[in-house]
């Protein structure tokens, strides 16, 4: 598959590579807190270790060398100094947070819709893509996000940004990538069975690749219809819930599906012909096969008619 940059091999010991244009200070803040903690922790360790060594109890009920109950000067010091350190960290963190959350005026707006277990991106010219966010480099991007069912959360580790995606509300997130390449996108708010498969790819390309991507038509006439159907089966994420080897997953398998008699949850029956297949792709809620959950999102507007025909051709191919 397209080579996604590794989170563990690239970047520093604790953090993946930071490709964000405006969040350079993030890693510095992270390692300042890290080294401060290590110094204080090792300090406490040494004190403790030294006290244990020097204080080993010789015979049974030997009392402590000196009964010290309090020392006001010391106590004031170790209250005031941590408070100051902590306030500095707060302000630095807050400054970085504001950079994260303010969107540049000339940002490129992309709509993100989180559905149960895949991401759907709508680009400015109306083109829709599944699990594939293509953005030009060094261009502020503004993602306007909403979910259609449950809570999700859009997380770009390499850009250090994350925002919850809430149904019935648009939440906004912005970033600017300064480096080309393919990067991971995760869903970090628990959203059900396939929460861990709800991954997408961020493709940072230069601006002319971006414009060619926008005008690229998914469908090329040259290859036979069923083969195009097979590509769409993978590209549009059908493989997440439907198998082609006969095993039933979240959704029924496509092997041997064509013209098969289907029994529905409400007890009615129908043959799986072209009309039924097209209707189930565009309006899945209408006919739910017995024993399956009603979780399939509608692909209306996501697949053009030619693509639906290709999928139906592919199913016929599988059922021979």
């Amino acid at each position: 598959m397209n080579n996604i940059q590794s989170l563990t091999k690239k970047g520093s010991f604790y953090l993946p590579e930071n490709i964000s244009a405006n969040l350079g200070q993030f890693d510095i803040l992270f390692y300042v807190i890290f080294w401060l903690s290590v110094i204080l922790f090792v300090g406490l360790l040494i004190f403790g270790f030294f006290f244990i060594i020097s204080g080993k109890r010789q015979q049974d009920d030997q009392l402590a060398k000196k009964q010290i109950t309090h020392n006001v000067k010391l106590e004031v010091i170790w209250t005031v100094i941590p408070t100051l350190i902590v306030i500095i960290i707060f302000f630095w963190g807050f400054k970085e947070y504001l950079i994260m959350r303010t969107t540049a005026p000339n940002a490129l707006e992309i709509y993100v819709s989180g559905k149960k277990w895949f991401w759907e991106f709508t680009y400015p010219n109306g083109k829709k893509a599944i699990d594939e966010l293509v953005v030009p480099v060094n261009q502020p991007i503004k993602l306007i996000m909403s979910s259609t069912d449950v809570l999700h959360s859009f997380y770009l580790p390499n850009l250090r940004v994350k925002r919850d995606v809430i149904p019935n509300r648009y939440t906004v997130m912005s970033f600017e990538s300064a480096k080309l390449g393919n990067y991971n996108i995760f869903c970090t708010e628990y959203c059900g069975d396939q929460h861990s498969n709800m991954k997408a790819i961020l493709k940072v390309v230069d601006s002319d690749d971006y414009t060619s991507f926008l005008n690229e038509v998914d469908f090329d006439e040259s290859i036979p219809l069923s083969e195009a159907g097979a590509n769409i089966y993978v590209k549009k994420g059908c493989n997440a819930c439907h198998s082609v080897d006969g095993s039933n997953m979240i959704g029924p398998t496509w092997k041997g599906l064509y013209n098969k008699n289907r029994e529905f949850a409400d007890g009615t029956y129908a043959k799986a012909d072209e009309v039924y297949l097209k209707e189930s792709i565009l309006y899945p809620q209408r006919k739910i096969v017995k024993g399956y959950q009603n979780v399939m999102p509608s692909y209306q507007g996501l697949l053009v008619d030619k693509e639906i025909d290709a999928i139906i051709e592919y199913i016929k191919e599988l059922s021979k």
Binding site: I33, V86, Y97, R160, V161, K162, T188
Partner: peptide, 16 residues
């Protein structure tokens, strides 16, 4: 590590 998670910007990266 609670101090890490308390700082706003760091928590956005480390949340969940």
């Amino acid at each position: 590590t609670g101090i890490f998670l308390g700082a706003l910007a760091i928590d956005i990266h480390l949340h969940d």
